[in-house]
Nucleic acid binder design. Structure first.
Length: 377
RNA sequence: GGGUAGGUAGCGAAGCGGUCAAACGCAGCAGACUGUAAAUCUGUCGACAAUUGUCUUCGGAGGUUCGAAUCCCCCCCUACCCA
């Protein structure tokens, strides 16, 4: 995988780069909206492009259930299926090992899920998860891993992390033994685990680095631990993961999480916050968040964030969107989603600009001060 | 003019002698949401004191009863039907 770091911050580990895939280049740091089931909920791929979304996520577990591999293969892969011609990354189902923990059993071989849709038993192995992602045709695929909960006993996190390492090895081998199905290159990242234990995180990182993945994800964080614990793990990861490979912090996070992680050398992020919270009426502004369902916005005809230059703020008022949410019109959820994605992309593009200008740290402090001082939620 | 069904907290709507400050829904208010089982979920929702507390409510006025939103009488209003 071609990844080039173009500029580095002098006062922190923050860096800017470009990640090249067959479906286009991705400037980093970057935020990737989540489109679990081949859809960023409520938004058309064309609209994502209009927002200048560079790369989106989809999920192997959910796509395997529906529409299933047959349909995805007949469609010619996910890009053609959903009319998205830019880069796409698939998560492996490792997060579902965590989020659907009541519905699965883990063994050395892999994971058996009891489908949340119809209860049927689904066998996921490191190998067949690679196969499914070949069929999906994602530009970047993730190996099956176990995301342990927090808090968890160190002994459990160790055992779990060691299993994830063995799975990663199998996934890497199987990736090498198979080829892309649609004529363009695919890449595979490794996922480090180890919870918030330095020792385990380091072991996991070293083992995965030895396998020479195309990039490295830091997994198993933002599952309930204090943010400081997460940052500690990032400081450590920064010293262990190769400079020359992209680093992806999975499932993170709030604007503050993202900026603090960029400061610690992370290049890629995904999170459901902007889309899910958008559907629930919470929108992000430079001076904090606000819940547009509140009656206090009923006659507030200002844009969501005055002076913020995006499609939603240029064209719609708080009062209108509040009305839409209030009467259950899907457009309300959509406009909030569009706005939040736009805000998150603005956040990472601003970070890039300030890293390049050498002003990242100051800008981050100023942004967070403003964001936290006047929370409208 | 006659008949029938009703008038319950912001709205809608249960309750039909005590366990009723009164189910439930909506609206309101507050909160949650981090590799999406989330267009979801939680709390609150008469007024005050703000933990077990007190006070005023079920169209209005009387009455029966130890006790009424619930029973009786009169009045007012609404919807529909018949003249």
């Amino acid at each position: 995988m071609k990844f080039s770091v173009s500029s580095k911050d002098t006062r922190s580990a923050a860096r800017c780069g470009v990640l090249s895939t067959s479906h286009g280049d991705i400037p980093t740091p970057i935020f990737m909206p989540v489109g679990t089931r081949a859809s960023v909920k409520s938004v058309e791929p064309e609209e994502l492009k209009a927002l200048d979304v560079k790369i989106i996520l989809a999920n192997t577990y959910h796509l395997f259930l529906k529409p299933g591999n047959d349909i995805l293969f007949k469609a010619g892969g996910i890009h053609r299926f959903m009319n998205w011609d830019r880069p796409l990354l698939t998560d492996s189902g490792g997060y579902q090992v965590y989020s659907l923990s009541q519905l699965r059993k883990i063994s050395e071989e892999g994971v058996i899920f009891k489908s949340h849709l119809d209860g049927s038993r689904l066998h996921f192995t490191p190998e067949n998860v690679v196969d499914t992602q070949r069929i999906i045709g994602s530009d970047i695929m993730m190996p099956l891993d176990e995301c342990p909960p927090w808090p968890a006993e160190k002994s459990y996190v160790r055992k779990s992390g060691e299993l994830t390492i063995r799975w990663a090895e199998r996934a890497r081998d199987h990736f090498a033994d198979t080829t892309p199905l649609y004529g363009y290159e695919q890449f595979q990242f490794g996922i480090t685990q180890g919870g918030t234990f330095e020792e385990l995180r380091a072991e996991s990182s070293r083992a995965l680095v030895d396998m020479d993945f195309d990039g490295y994800a830091v997994g198993g964080l933002a599952v309930g631990e204090p943010a400081e614990e997460m940052y500690r793990m990032l400081d450590l990861s920064h010293t262990l993961l190769p400079e020359s490979k992209p680093r992806y912090l999975m499932g993170v996070g709030t604007p503050a999480n993202i900026l603090n992680a960029i400061e610690r050398g992370i290049d890629m992020f995904d999170c459901v916050i902007p889309t899910r919270e958008g559907r629930n009426g919470r929108v992000y502004t430079r001076s904090g968040t606000m819940n547009l369902r509140s009656a206090k916005f009923a006659d507030d005809f200002r844009p969501i964030d005055e002076g913020f230059d995006n499609h939603v703020c240029r064209n719609y008022s708080r009062a209108y969107i509040r009305h839409l949410l209030n009467v259950g019109e899907i457009l309300g959820m959509k406009l909030c989603t569009l706005h939040n994605i736009s805000f998150y992309l603005w956040l990472t593009s601003s970070a890039r600009r300030h890293i390049q200008a050498g002003t990242f740290t100051d800008w981050k402090e100023a942004f967070l001060k403003e964001f936290n001082s006047n929370d409208k939620a």
